[in-house]
């Protein structure tokens, strides 16, 4: 039976984050948390292939108890099982320590019920690192296809998958052995509307909660802040650039404003010669 696992993250909706202009602190209050958008598309793709191949989808996430909302959302989309990996000991984990925990959990799930495909979103919108997926693949010693845009074929009998990925200059179609890890762009699948049975199921669904107490054991030295090779030294707000002169066409007229702009533009080093215009 086809078995897919999707590793998701609940993130603050970064498009709604504002900075307090007086204290320069991040205003987190009232910022909604959402299922990371790329992860949502990864779940959609996993569910699409589960239906094609009559299989099963397991969702995992490492995060605070509130992440249960995002897990339920995945169940609503058609996933079958959800695991919340939550423990204070995991707090402060960087991508390295995160990929350690996820790898241990994925191996445990795989032992119980062998996996074919392991999905990630291409990156989380709060950290934007795109490191966890490749990190997990290396730890599991599995092939990884990043920036996946299309799954052409999943062949569970012959144990291979054909996935199209996107780079800056081209698309590459990659054939990899199963099980394989992939990180997904939004194009991988459209978010489906929830079916009524899935919706009802999700409302009553209680995700499993895995902690350092069990059901599996973790090496304490590799967890959280202590297990992270990187540490945040300091944080701040981005440097403010100095604003230049602003003209209003209502006051100067359009042509004068534009002429002033060109006079300044042509003073910029290299611009006049580049435009073939003498100052």
């Amino acid at each position: 039976m086809f078995h897919a696992l999707v590793s998701i993250k609940q993130v603050p909706d970064t498009t709604n984050i504002r900075i307090d202009p007086e204290t320069n602190n991040l205003i987190r209050q009232g910022v909604p948390t959402i299922l990371n958008p790329y992860d949502a598309h990864a779940v959609a793709a996993a569910v699409e292939w589960k239906r094609k191949l009559n299989g099963k989808v397991t969702i995992i996430t490492m995060g605070p108890p509130a992440a249960i909302t995002s897990l339920r959302e995945c169940i609503e989309m058609g996933a079958d099982r959800a695991i919340l990996i939550s423990d204070r000991a995991f707090a402060g984990a960087d991508t390295w320590a995160t990929s350690y925990v996820l790898t241990e959990v994925i191996q445990a799930v795989h032992k119980e019920d062998p996996l074919d495909l392991i999905f990630f979103g291409k990156q989380a919108i709060d950290g934007d690192t795109a490191q966890v997926g490749p990190g997990v693949a290396v730890r599991l010693d599995l092939p990884v296809v990043t920036y996946a845009v299309k799954i052409h074929e999943v062949n569970t009998a012959e144990k291979f998958v054909v996935i199209e990925r996107k780079t800056e200059s081209r698309n590459e179609v990659i054939k990899a052995k199963l099980p394989a890890v992939m990180t997904c762009e939004k194009e991988i699948a459209d978010i489906p509307y929830a079916s009524l049975p899935d919706l009802v199921y999700s409302l009553r669904y209680e995700p499993e909660v895995w902690t350092t107490e069990g059901p599996i054991t973790f090496d304490p030295a590799q967890l959280g802040l202590k297990g992270s090779p990187t540490t945040v030294f300091r944080t701040g707000t981005p440097e403010k650039h100095k604003a230049g002169e602003v003209l209003k066409t209502a006051e100067t007229g359009v042509d004068v404003a534009v002429k002033t702009a060109f006079d300044k533009i042509l003073e910029v080093e290299g611009v006049a010669s580049m435009l073939g215009v003498q100052r």
Partner: peptide
């Protein structure tokens, strides 16, 4: 931090066992 570089750096950092700061 291109598609290729991000794909590679995350894997190398994990394999070597070191820290990586993205972007």
């Amino acid at each position: 931090a291109t598609t290729l570089g991000r794909d590679l750096a995350g894997a190398v950092a994990t394999s070597v066992g070191t820290g990586l700061t993205a972007d």
